[in-house]
Write a protein that binds this DNA or RNA. Sequence first.
DNA 1: CCAAATTTGATGTACGTAAATCAAAAAATC
DNA 2: GATTTTTTGATTTACGTACATCAAATTTGG
Lengths: 340, 340
Amino acid sequence: MRPTVHDIAAAAGVSLATVDRVLNQRPGVRHVTREKVETAIRELGYIRDVAAANLAKGRTYPLVFILPASDNSFMHGLNAEIRQAVLRSPAERTDIRTIEVPAFDPAALVFVLEELSRERPCGIAMVATDAPEVRATVDRLVRERFPIVTLVSDLTGSLRHHYAGVDNIAAGRTAARLLGRFLGPRKGEIAVLAGSMLVRDHRERLEGFAAVMAAEFPHLAILPVLEGRDDPEVAHRLVADALGNAGIIGVYSLGAGNRGLIRALKEKAVDRTLTVIAHELTAHTRAALVDNTIDAILNQDAGHEVRSAIRVLKAKADGLAVIEAQERIRLDIFLKDNLP
Amino acid sequence: MRPTVHDIAAAAGVSLATVDRVLNQRPGVRHVTREKVETAIRELGYIRDVAAANLAKGRTYPLVFILPASDNSFMHGLNAEIRQAVLRSPAERTDIRTIEVPAFDPAALVFVLEELSRERPCGIAMVATDAPEVRATVDRLVRERFPIVTLVSDLTGSLRHHYAGVDNIAAGRTAARLLGRFLGPRKGEIAVLAGSMLVRDHRERLEGFAAVMAAEFPHLAILPVLEGRDDPEVAHRLVADALGNAGIIGVYSLGAGNRGLIRALKEKAVDRTLTVIAHELTAHTRAALVDNTIDAILNQDAGHEVRSAIRVLKAKADGLAVIEAQERIRLDIFLKDNLP
DNA sequence: CCAAATTTGATGTACGTAAATCAAAAAATC
DNA sequence: GATTTTTTGATTTACGTACATCAAATTTGG
């Protein structure tokens, strides 16, 4: 049987109350006594029964998700997954709240974080906007012992405890290699459709993409990035225009707004053999993959990201270890054959 | 606050003891009374606090993993992941035991299952050998309310509650498309290295591979399968021999024994541009991917499979729902750019 | 050495459920 | 209507931990 507080008390030759004081870092224990107890804990291999502790404390985990108010299908999907998590709240003892902040607005994000620091939730998951003032605020909160994880978009160089999202540089590199290998020795130009170069994820994907393209597929030339602002209409116009260029043999769509891309491809490229790689599996991209309009889809699973963020925040709040391999968000590569 | 048994008792106008009898399906409750309680449970939206219940019961989950005694790196990895799970046992209230059975031996597997049916663990995870007698035994145990999940290799058509593994037909199809697309319009022959055609996973991978090859890449001819018995030495000899054929432009290795394959490739194909796709990410295949000997690796994450099997078995033992999307084991596709 | 301050012990209650016991009430049987 | 059987209630203990209270012991300061 696994040891309990009673066993620790007996082993250390102290009372239950003292063990409790040590375990819950309450004051009023002499240094030597504390050491005796800690030794007993170590020697017996005591692990606190978190379930029993939570029961006794009547503990719930108030968690906050901070999301940008962006109207694209990925964010809708993320929201839906958070709602699913809310439905599981009773069983998981979580109490989840979502706050929307204007996208790409560091000041607004900082303001919300400051507010939260007064409210003291037991964990914060945030889609980070990459700015110095955000980093500074996050670092301050982490120092004040707030568990914080970044979601989807990271805040490099900050003290955040964890990042629940994919490595976007690796995603871009992977896209480049897939495109390069699919195209083989053919020479030509590659169109890149992004949402906005102000978004860190998109910049990183492009960075990785361009690096591998330059190093390993120099016969393929990357055209200037089309910024579709993740808007289907804008994307449609930009892509339709670009396809006037007959030298284009491949397309990499690294943001949202794929509906417009797909429509443009179906209108303008029926007679051409374009190789197309896009991000994010949605109903639209899925259909396009199946009908061969798109050749591969790179995806991050929003459900995994949300569940991982919650697991990590709970673990951090309890001071427990996480299973690193389990919390690594993988880049999914979908061809038409391995769709879920 | 979420309702407790006390609230149910009050709402139904019965005592705590009666509620307990209903909840734990103990006898001695009249039909009408039982209905009153069940109505109250439904109306208040009561959900049993599993943590508290497990505490009261002093419950642990005795689980058994049945694995084939195969000496290849995938099974070693799987074993290692089970050992990791054993280390987490105290926190997860599991009590995990592993039983090794001779590989490809339905009778041995049936024997072990029969033994276990007497011992009554609360869940069984098994790497299934696909045979009618195994299916029959599994079905019988499931009918006797044993939670059973298949691991890595499924038992199609059986009543097992869940399969914690990848879709091997889809894996084969994906390999075919990757190979076909990487090779482009080049004509040539494809060598296929398998462990044994007696193993269901390998048969299914080949089946999917051959189907897509025939339908979409008819200019590529699949050579007769090399059965390497998942043994590096045998694989080396077979592949080295096969590479005498100058018409080979691609290789699909769908089993284990990749060490031999890689050695053969490095010895015999330095001057050729072979496109190679292999299964299972190990130290060897990883190195080969990085140095361009292999072009893509398809992988199933043994850690995910083990953790998923445990979660599912626990949930089934408690009669709880599982999060389907979370328990789907995905086929990982690794290029050198997205290695973990 | 005494008083004050600090440290420790002993004990009880609580969390939500399980499980057991025994008495009481209600229903079914004759 | 008495008897047996079934159903229900009331109550208690337990699981492992948290947390509070009060008394007792020990240490510290003067």
